[in-house]
Design a protein around this nucleic acid. Structure first.
Lengths: 200, 200
DNA sequence: ACGAATATGAACACAGTGTCCATATAAATT
DNA sequence: AATTTATATGGACACTGTGTTCATATTCGT
């Protein structure tokens, strides 16, 4: 009688489809966090996952798409949007959490590299927008929409613009780090935009 | 008597230093605009310039640094900052010009690719910040500083944050194109920030 | 049980990088 | 003017990574 858990004896032939998929995503995520986009290659992912490069090419349209899948696999669910009824407090809390994630966790090292790669990897950018940025924008707009109904915002606003002036400002500092991403920054964003920076 | 302008007869041996430099920058700029970062390789630049790859490696620390040099060589001086004494008008004019540059010229195709490449090319990011983003931030802050002295802005502001909420918002739409870069956007940015979006 | 789907190893061509030479020429120094 | 130094060049090389083809082995759906 052989061992109950047969040691991995890989050779030719098909392997369970989702087993391969899980191992590849795991390997992609680990490699991405360990080496960043610079050291992220399809070849290395395949080797780490014990899979064939051919398989990876079959299921992922580009290196970036594979990296993004790996990222989601390892980083976990995105930040929740608080909605307590106080817009300023909710926005500040959400932005502080986002700033923290981007400046004190591995996500902050990888996220800009993914966006960067997306600039020359259409498959990655498409997946990023569909699975990450668009849904998060929609969530933010929803929060803003509710606040407007409560009377906390003026009626004649394009809420999408507000999203860019809050989170977009953060991405700016993330991608072009002339200035630091700090809590004070997150707080100033909300204060500036809600109250206005002009003289009363 | 031979032709006054001897046809290029290249072979071994040193060539005039700045002649090589000029030809390389020219080639780099042209290739960048023609094919974007995706098709931009040191090899192609060398071939176009009639230079040796070794030479390019010697003078430029990375592919991105070469591309950025080529970009500056071909795109020309950056946009001027108007300063008429009316902050809202000046900001709107500047942002509209920037938005136009990024959505209706070749610069708008290349700029995001350069920033993208910069995420995994430290030499490029360093050069980009030093030669482009930092000086432009400083210029914007200067305009804001003057407006504040004129009494158009509140006293207790971190002017750097304002830069991110105006130009950073544009870069956000440039790099993650979930929403379009339009004139109305540029105008809304200034209106929102100066007046505030909260209920009075 | 059977056929379709697919993962695998191996091999190949290809592009690009980064580096080494020896050599020829420009630029600087004497 | 002669000489030394700097450097651009062509050619070659090893290396990495991409993308593909092929035959074969195995799983999966029916």
């Amino acid at each position: 009688m052989t061992q109950p858990t047969e040691p991995v004896r890989r050779g030719r032939g098909r392997r369970p489809a989702d087993e391969v998929r899980r191992e590849v995503l795991q390997a992609a995520g680990e490699l991405l966090l360990a080496e960043g986009m610079a050291g992220f290659t399809i070849e290395k992912v395949a080797a780490l996952a014990g899979a064939s490069r051919v398989t990876l090419h079959k299921w992922w349209p580009s290196k970036g798409a594979l990296a993004l899948d790996g990222y989601f696999n390892v980083v976990g669910p995105t930040l929740a949007f608080p909605d307590t009824g106080d817009l300023a407090a909710d926005l500040t809390a959400q932005l502080r959490a986002f700033v923290h994630l981007m400046s004190h966790t591995q996500a902050g090292r990888v996220m800009p590299e993914l966006i960067g790669q997306g600039q020359t990897d259409p498959e990655l950018m498409a997946a990023f927008r569909e699975r990450y940025s668009a849904p998060r924008r929609a969530l933010a707009v929803e929060i803003l929409e509710r606040a407007r109904r409560r009377g906390e915002l003026r009626e004649d606003l394009d809420l999408e613009v507000i999203v860019d002036q809050l989170w977009g400002a953060c991405y700016h500092r993330l991608l072009i780090p002339d200035q630091p991403l700090t809590d004070e920054f997150a707080e100033a964003l909300v204060r500036n935009l809600l109250n206005g920076v002009g003289r009363p």
